[in-house]
Structure formats: structure tokens, C-alpha cells
């Protein structure tokens, strides 16, 4: 396991795009402690994080819910001011230079759109063009590229609120790239998308990164996103950076498992099969866990040979589980 090393001491190299040094965010939380009494407690959502990201890298930033991922992203984009430490994005301080920084970064939130809810996509993009002062030729070229690669043509005249989640996400990604940002933050960009939309989004991101050299910081719960996009992964938990290295290392440390969800013709006792163990039974449906590195095919064949298999699906290990495994028994948090 590689340990995160602060590189902030070595002064900003020109090729370092994202730079954090001992960044903290402390929230005052008031809790009810009776009908009138309120207790003030301090929550350290981000507790001294340092890392740097060189230009052109795609980094996965993962961790369980409430680990501090979104808070970090909000600080990197200038929405939230850090309570301590130092942040430089493209050499700018997000707290002081929010609007100047906004021109150089693109942000996509999976859970909510940054587009204008009631306006057609085309109007939203037009507004983005004027607001970011994108010159006409560049705008036309970028829009054409996005429309083609994300298949937005038929959607341009549709108000954002009428788009499906997958369509909206594509629309949002395009909006975030029209001004040629140097850094792209993606917060859960594939959440709730179907398989085809996910693939399309990932292909597009890879291409943007390869062709334009855009630096990408990505949070996700979907390990496939990370596997297909990121060479480097950072794991955050309890506001601290727990791991910073390549994906293989994470898997080895995490010893993660995939799950085969099998529907049988009838209710059966937990199946016993080599290379997998039954973790849950619900009527005729059973959940079989097997190592993530192992192929699913022989397992499926073995199950089908011995049991009346009706239907099956394979679930990727959730990042939570990988991390939970990484940190063993104390993963049971509230």
C-alpha cells in the first residue's frame, strides 16, 4: 500500500493541476438534546487531506457515504471554503478566485443538474456560451463534438426537465465541457444510468481525456467506472486519505468479491459449490460470493450443471464492500 505523500513542499510544478495541502473542513452541527437544548458538536468532514494531481490524469476519488468526498469536491470547486490547509487549482485559490476558477473547471453532479431546468438544452448551452464568454468558433466545434459523441442531436430542443436521467447526464457532461475546462470534476456521473448510457459516458470521458488532456477527478460507487477509467485511485474515509495508488493494489488490499445472484426453479437449501459461498437466501433466489479476480463463467457452468438455474446476474463489488474489507472489522460505522 502506497502511503500518500504531501508534495506541496516541492513548490507548484507547472504540470500540477490540483494541489491540496493539509485541507480540513470542520462543520458545527447542532443537535437536539431535549425540547429546547441544542448541543453544538464539531464534525471534521475532511481531516487533513494532501495530494496532488498532474495534468492529464484521471483519478478516482472513492469512499463510503459521508466519508467527505462531496465536501472535498465542494472545496475544490469553490462552493465551500476550507477551514484549514491550502488548495490550489490551476494555481488559483478557489475561495478567493471562485469566478476566475469557474472558467477553467467543469463540474458534473450526478444527482442534480447544473442546467436550467425549464429551458431546452440548446438554450442552456447558449447561456453557458455567453456566461463563459466562449468564442463562436470554439463553441461551435465543441458543441458539434459533444452532440456527435454523446448523441445529443435529437435532444437539443427538449426542456431539461423532460429528459431521462441518462439523457440529462449526457447533456450535463456536454455543458461542463463547452468552455474547454482544464479540470473536470464528476460526482457520481453514472449513478442511476442503464448499461448502455454508462458505457457511452465512459467512452466519452476517456476520449476527452486522451484528446484534450483534460484532468479528471471522479467520485463513484461503481467500481466499473474506476476500472475502465482510472489508473489511480484515492480512497477517503472519515475525512482522511486512506489509500492513494493504482487500482490493482486496491483490489489486492481489499480482497474484494463479486456476487452471482441466481434464481432457481424452486426454493433450495444454500448451494454448496467450489470457488463460491452462499451469502444470502431469499426464496428461490440465492446470492453467491466469489473472488473478484475469478471469472464468472466456470462458476455459472458449475451451478447450472448441479442446480435448476432459471436466471442469473453478476453484481460487481460495491466500493463500500471493498473498503469495508480493506479496513476489516471496524468497517461497521454509523
Amino acid at each position: 500500500m502506497t502511503v500518500p505523500v504531501s508534495e506541496a513542499a516541492t513548490e507548484a510544478v507547472t504540470d500540477t493541476v490540483i494541489e491540496l495541502d493539509g485541507v480540513e473542513k470542520v462543520f458545527d452541527v447542532r443537535r437536539k438534546a431535549g425540547p429546547l437544548r441544542r448541543l453544538r458538536t464539531q464534525v471534521r468532514a475532511v481531516d487533513g487531506i494532501s495530494f496532488t494531481v498532474p495534468r492529464g490524469e484521471i483519478v478516482g476519488y472513492i469512499g463510503p457515504n459521508g466519508a467527505g468526498k462531496s465536501t472535498t469536491i465542494k472545496m475544490l470547486t469553490g462552493i465551500l471554503n476550507p477551514s484549514g490547509g491550502r488548495i490550489r487549482i490551476c494555481g488559483l485559490d478557489p475561495t478567493r478566485d471562485r469566478t476566475r476558477l469557474a472558467r477553467r473547471i467543469g463540474v458534473v453532479f450526478g444527482q442534480r443538474t447544473t442546467l436550467w431546468w425549464d429551458l431546452p438544452l440548446r438554450d442552456s448551452y447558449e447561456l453557458v456560451r455567453r456566461m463563459y464568454r466562449i468564442d463562436d468558433a470554439r463553441y461551435a466545434a465543441n458543441l458539434a463534438a459533444c452532440v456527435e459523441l454523446l448523441d445529443l442531436g435529437p435532444l437539443l430542443e427538449v426542456p431539461v426537465r423532460q429528459l431521462s436521467l441518462g439523457q440529462r447526464m449526457r447533456g450535463d457532461i456536454a455543458a461542463a465541457l463547452l468552455h474547454d475546462p482544464e479540470v473536470l470534476y464528476l460526482d457520481e456521473p453514472t449513478i442511476g444510468l442503464d448499461v448502455i448510457s454508462k458505457t457511452r459516458v465512459r467512452d466519452f470521458l476517456r476520449r476527452v481525456n486522451a484528446e484534450r488532456g483534460t484532468t479528471v477527478l471522479l467520485t463513484t460507487h461503481d467500481l466499473t467506472d474506476i476500472e475502465q477509467l482510472c489508473r489511480r485511485v484515492m480512497v477517503i474515509d472519515h475525512g482522511r486519505l486512506m489509500y492513494d495508488g493504482d487500482l490493482g493494489g486496491l483490489h489486492a488490499v481489499g480482497d474484494s468479491e463479486r456476487t452471482l445472484v441466481a434464481d432457481f426453479a424452486r426454493e433450495l437449501p444454500p448451494v454448496e459449490i467450489e470457488g463460491a459461498r452462499c451469502v444470502k437466501v431469499d426464496g428461490p433466489r440465492q446470492w453467491l460470493a466469489f473472488p473478484a479476480q475469478a471469472s464468472a463463467a466456470p462458476l455459472v457452468a458449475a451451478v447450472a450443471a448441479h442446480y435448476p438455474l432459471v436466471d442469473l446476474s453478476v453484481r460487481e463489488p460495491a466500493i463500500e464492500d471493498v473498503i469495508a474489507r480493506m479496513y476489516g472489522e471496524d468497517a461497521d460505522r454509523t
Partner: peptide, 23 residues
Amino acid sequence: RDGTLDTLLLRPAPVLAQVAADR
């Protein structure tokens, strides 16, 4: 409450003008 104020802070423009002009 619904978090959409954050999206206004991402744009290179004064927040007050964006809130005031919305809808």
C-alpha cells in the same frame, strides 16, 4: 435546501444576479 444553490456557485458569474434572474 435542495442543493441547487451550489450549481450557481460553479458558474463564473455573481450569485446574486443568478438567483435574482432565475425564473
